[in-house]
Structure formats: C-alpha cells, structure tokens
Amino acid sequence: MKELRCVAKKEIMDNIRNKWIIFSSGILVLLLLTSLFLMPSLKYCADFKEAISQLAKLVSPIVPIIALILGYASIAREIESGTMEALVAMPISRREIIAGKFLGLLAVLVISISISFGVSAMVIAFSRTMENFSYFFLFMLYTILLGSSFLALSFFFSSLLRKRSSALILAIFIWFFFNLIMPLIQTGLLLEVGMKGALAGKIPDWFYALDFLNPLSMYTSLVDMLAGSAKNLPSFYTPYSLVAVFLIWILLFFLLTVLKFERTDI
C-alpha cells in the first residue's frame, strides 16, 4: 500500500510539471471565460443551465486531449526509458504499479479540471450572478467523468505499446475516432436504419444505447439532462445509468490494463 502511494505520488509529480497539461488546462480556462463573457448566445442565455449546455460543446474536445496527453505514453514511456525494469524489480506487485500510476494520473486530471473550473467559477461569481452553483459543480463532475474515461482508454492502449511514437499516433486516432468518426457512424446508422422512427418524431431506443459506446455522447446527454433540454428519452437512459456506464468504462479499461501488464515481459 505504501509502495502504491509512492508510485502514485511520483506519477503526480512527474505530470503536474508537464507543460502540455498546464497549457491545455490554460486553454480550457480561457475557453470557459471568453465564451461566458463574449459569446452573445451565452451572454443572453435566460438561465445558467442553458449556458452550461453551450459550454459543454467547447469543453468536450479539450478535456479528452488533456486525458490523452496524460495517459497515452505513461506505460510505454517507462518501458522505453528502462525505468519500468527498475520498478518491477522492486517489492511491489505489477497490479499495484498499475493502480498507483492510474491513481496518480487521475489525481492530476482531477486537479487540472478542478482548477480550470474553479478559476472560471470564481471569475463568473464576481462579475455576474450565478443562481445555481450546484449545477456548475455537477457540470464539473461530469467533465471529470469524461476525462477519466479517456484517461482509462489511453492508459490501456499505452500498455499495449512499447514505443512512445506509436502511442502518440494511437492517441491522435482515439481522439478523431470519438470526436468525428463515431458520431458519423451513429448518424449514418440512424439515417440508414432508423429513418422511419426518426421521421415519426421518435428516435429508436437502440440509438440511445449506442451512446454508451462513446463517452462524448454520454457526456453531452448528461449535460443536456442537467440543462433540462433533453426530451423523450427511453427509460434506461437516465443520469444514473449514464454515470454508471461511465464508471464501468473506467473500471473496465483499468482492469484490462492490469491484465495486459501482468502478462507483459519487461
């Protein structure tokens, strides 16, 4: 346990200084603030809940990038540099190494998102009235879930590769896949198969189920529900089920990483 904490702490220290993490967190703050102040659609949003829904569209491409930067080479890098050899020879199990690293990365992700959101919230609170901070807080928690799922995903892929360069290419692919390719596939499927239902004003249930395969879709839905703009949803599609699926995502890829790493020759 002590060793696990030690690994986690080292992972935090290694990553908190990562200039790309600082840079992309800065971008996140900037986006949150400028859009809250400058974008007319947000400025005149009747209430804050509505604004959140707009903000989510800005946040959703950036947060996966932060998570991918954190995770994409975390294991491959140490195998490449040789430090993993030293680590696995220490009195710590491989499971603990993976858990320590993942918790460390998770902590950096949470810190980065919390600071970005916290700074934004403070600035907003000073300059305009925000009736409902709890919505903003939920919004932040959902964003952390989004980031964590991408972190778990990239962490797993990092365990499959031994080279940093190939890990980077894979990370870029993951981002494109969930941001662009997957939505295209989903829309294509809907047009092809579910046209009738869609025309009748009701989107078929299986289309919602497809969302479970894409953390970005789940995130958008969660935020829409928060903003109250989601309507006619199937009964299995609730904030609780979405949060549960998020947690399953994170746990699943974490466990896959453990399994893979225990079978890897270092």
Binding site: D14, S81, E85, A89, P91
Partner: peptide, 19 residues
Amino acid sequence: SKVREKIGVVFQEPALDTE
C-alpha cells in the same frame, strides 16, 4: 516479494529517471 526485498539490480539498459 521476499526475493525482491533481498536483491538489488543494475540492468543492462540504463534505468534512471533522467528528468
């Protein structure tokens, strides 16, 4: 884990954190 407590290793490939 008992074995690991008893041993020290210097691997053929350098394994230091250069940062």
